[in-house]
Design a protein around this nucleic acid. Structure first.
Lengths: 230, 230
DNA sequence: GTCGCCATGATTGTCAACAATTCTGTTGAA
DNA sequence: TTCAACAGAATTGTTGACAATCATGGCGAC
């Protein structure tokens, strides 16, 4: 039996590797267009190549990377049009979910959100981007799970995942993290006050910054490449 | 070089196998709870086991089958609660898409839908369940693609896929197929007339029958198993 | 007669070697 | 100098064998 990690089931290991790669993409360690070489990843993540292979297949299905036959996998570079479309769908889905959250909300939900947000705020304060990312994910999952429809939640998460590749810009930015924290706190307050319109408005607002930051950063590059002929 | 089929890229082959299995599930050849043995499938579909493995992973992701480690894959049996939740999300998504279809619709769209519906009607008339299923898929894809947001379309298709396992009841029923045909024709008419409310209403209506048929067929079984203790 | 334990078989999970493909750098000629 | 062809390296795709795991059925103990 290994000392540090106990043996996981294969499916879980694949999920774990996929999640690890996803984090590296979100945090900007793996940049768009960067090539993902199976054997290198296998060595770095201390796992066999075929496990990496499966993880890459999963990330491809999710839409975070692209794979071309016999040429390998690349972190997908999202073009602004795509990002806009995805965010438009996210807005619809998250609004839909927010409108179904029971009001007044059960005390259980509030305390759960507060606990998660405590972790998030701490991560933001200490500048731990990875911890902030994870806490952020937990927050949204817990929030939307309250809508009562797990399949809707799944969709929301899937769409969020799709633009993870576009989040490296904001994921490590102190200002954006602080803004996200404040908006989370606002959502908790809105739920506590039973103010659904405010909650919905906050959810919608919450999506804007990372979308706009990415588009602002990438749009000119795309506009140029399009006119030049890429 | 093989005589019948030329060599495909691996990714396409996986997709093909997954699609084939999906059809078999929809058409009721593979029943819920039925076990899917990798080696058997590999032999039957004339591919190597590891291709089947990837296809199963894809179907698991989509939600059509379940896999438990070291025990294999099973066709997922959807419980009525789940089906209701999925259909509720489908209704929201398809309504959203239908509301974004440009009106008046381009002539291109109408002729495309009419062509597809021609194939669908023919399949219904001749009782070819498989062809009807395929034409039905095409129809909805073409219809919702007109909303202009490919990511929304993808979501709609994903949710439709999730309940494919619940469709074997209606997929081969002459009455249901005829009803679907008539509703499709109604949608085309609504689009031609530029009558958006009618189109939206028809889309919503269109979801009902297969959901209700499945729930009616399965609900008592679940109610019993729940009270007995499953 | 029933319960629990172990041997056996069926199936999934893991692996490393091999084959096929694409990329890179070099050479030689126009 | 530029271009094309070629050889070699790097990387992905494929395969069959092997190991680990779980269900099944028989055997003995109580």
């Amino acid at each position: 039996m290994p000392t540090t990690a106990l043996k996981l089931q294969t499916t879980d290991r694949v999920r774990g590797i996929a999640a690890a790669l996803e984090e590296e993409i979100v945090l900007g360690w793996l940049m768009p267009r960067e090539r993902l070489v199976e054997e290198d990843l296998a060595e770095r993540l201390e796992v066999k190549r075929h496990v990496v292979r499966e993880a890459l297949a999963e990330l491809e299905r999710v839409g975070l990377i692209e794979r071309v036959p016999n040429r390998g996998a690349f972190v997908k570079l999202l073009d602004p049009t795509e990002v806009r479309q995805i965010y438009s769908v996210r807005e619809a889905l998250e609004t839909l979910a927010a409108e179904q959250i029971p009001m007044p909300a059960p005390a259980r939900l509030l305390s759960q959100l507060e606990e998660i947000q405590g972790a998030h705020s701490a991560a933001v304060a200490s500048g731990d981007a990875r911890a902030a990312f994870r806490a952020n994910m937990s927050f949204h999952e817990a929030l939307f799970a309250a809508c009562g429809n797990p399949h809707l939640v799944e969709l929301i998460q899937a769409m969020a995942q799709k633009v993870h590749g576009a989040r490296s810009i904001t994921a490590a930015s102190a200002e954006h993290l602080a803004l996200a924290r404040d908006e989370h706190l606002g959502m908790i307050e809105a739920i506590r006050a039973g103010d659904r319109p405010r909650l919905v408005a906050l959810c919608r607002q919450h999506l804007g910054p990372s979308r706009d930051a990415y588009i602002a950063a990438v749009e000119p590059r795309f506009a140029r490449s399009k006119s030049v002929g890429g």
